[in-house]
Design a binder for these strands. Structure first.
Length: 421
RNA sequence: UUGAUCACGAUACAUCAUC
């Protein structure tokens, strides 16, 4: 059993989760040893880290069947797995189940639930869970409040977000870098960079040190206001704080220059990062490619796709959508289709944005039937059409003069809970 | 006097419409 424990742990930690899973299955079949709760939890942890929720669920069922008693850790991990995918009914069901089994959910368990509602933007539910925690005398912690702040920031209610900060201080909870980081990012996203810096000052006054993420957040805030020079100065200032700019810092600046249409400056940053020993990643390349696409320089964009392959970098869904969109904008349909097929070949499943991009391409050509085919495929493969999908299709029908269909979709969109914009 | 390098939160790139 000890050996088995080790085996599972090693597999799970090295990302060989499939192997760990198989070993687990195998041991269960022979029935000679019963895995300890420790190895089960390591396995669950490994599986969930790699997004293998279904396998994790299977392990859970096996545990129940073999009478291995789950503990708080086991339940919380799986609950968190469901939450991350927005499968809240299942998450809640498991909370009830664990209570039924005499295992009490703790702060972390409830935080995992709150995290799920936060991802779905369901603020009401978030505060309901908080209320429930208070009733059950489970003290919320810094993370609980941070997630509330995140929720308010996402809907641009910065005042409410800041009042949560006050409330947590009133409860003698000490906000940490992440808490401040959320608020700083929140202010950056609404373009209130001065307030973002004000929060940063607060943080430093509170005795917390600056870190790379906070700097990057501010850099991004400046960049999105097209204040790239100040952003670049901030990268230089980082050294004085004893911080080392990373891929995110440089890529953010590079992207900002590309957005300005100044690809040369983008390349300068590209070189700068290499000089400083920071390797570009997919995002860095994607920003450059996107820059070329905006300038309709598709040959150049493609050159970088090739270059990625040369340096052994794998393009991702973003790379493909970027290029597809570039070709759509200049009306080169055949290239779009080629990329779509390459995407299907290379990648696992197109994501929501890949589908939206493709649908947009077809709509712009007035090929509404084909657009609908993709829509069907999208739903079949588990991607949920969002307000952008609908707006795209509605616009497509309007373009071909089919106002009737446009209204029909509009109604469907509202029925599904998306607000028309 | 002990309570788990197994659980929860922050930063960069792509898609629609309006202008």
């Amino acid at each position: 059993p000890a050996v088995f424990d080790m085996l599972i742990k090693v597999y799970a930690e090295d990302g060989m989760v499939k192997e760990a899973f198989d070993a687990f299955e195998c041991v269960l079949q022979t029935g000679f040893i019963t895995p300890t709760i420790h190895s089960c939890n390591s396995l669950l942890n490994g599986l969930l880290k790699y997004g293998q929720l279904e396998m994790a669920w299977h392990v859970y069922e096996q545990m129940v069947e073999k009478g291995i008693k789950c503990n708080v850790f086991s339940y919380t991990m799986i609950i968190s797995g469901f939450s991350k995918e927005g499968r809240m009914q299942e998450a809640i069901k498991l909370v009830l189940e664990m209570e039924r089994m005499g295992c009490n959910p703790n702060v972390v368990t409830y935080n995992a639930i709150i995290d799920g509602y936060c991802r779905r933007g369901e603020l009401e539910e978030m505060s309901n869970v908080l209320k429930m925690m208070l009733e059950k005398k489970i003290g919320p912690n810094v993370i609980t409040f941070s997630m509330l702040i995140k929720g308010y920031c996402r809907e641009s209610s910065l005042e409410r977000a800041e009042s949560v900060l006050m409330e947590m201080k009133a409860r003698n909870l000490v906000p940490d870098c992440v808490t401040y980081g959320l608020l700083i990012d929140g202010y950056c996203k609404v373009g209130e960079i001065e307030s973002a810096f004000r929060i940063k000052e607060d943080m430093v006054k509170g005795g917390l040190k600056m870190n790379v993420v906070i700097c990057n957040t501010l850099i991004n805030g400046l960049c999105k206001l097209a204040r790239v020079e100040e952003a670049e100065q901030l990268v230089l200032d980082m050294r004085d704080w004893g911080l080392v700019p990373d891929k995110v810092s440089y890529s953010t600046i590079l992207d900002a220059y590309c957005r300005k249409g100044d690809i040369l400056e983008g390349f300068r940053v590209f070189d700068l990062m290499e000089q400083n020993g920071v390797k570009p990643n997919v995002v860095t390349y994607n920003s450059l490619i996107s820059g070329f696409c905006r300038l309709e320089k598709m040959e150049e964009a493609n050159k970088f796709l090739k270059k990625m392959a040369e340096v052994g970098m794998t393009p991702n869904e973003v790379t493909y959508s970027t290029l597809m969109d570039g070709y759509i904008k200049i009306g080169k349909t055949d290239e779009v289709l080629k990329l779509w097929n390459a995407l299907l070949r290379d990648s696992f499943v197109p994501n929501q944005i890949s589908y939206n991009t493709m649908i947009n391409g077809l709509c712009k050509l007035g090929k509404m039937d084909e657009a609908n085919e993709i829509l069907l495929e999208m739903v079949e493969r588990g991607s949920i059409p969002d307000s952008i999908t609908y707006t795209t299709l509605i616009d497509g029908y309007c373009r071909i003069g089919n106002i009737e269909q446009a209204f029909k979709l509009q109604n469907e969109m509202v029925r599904k809970g998306f607000f028309p914009r």
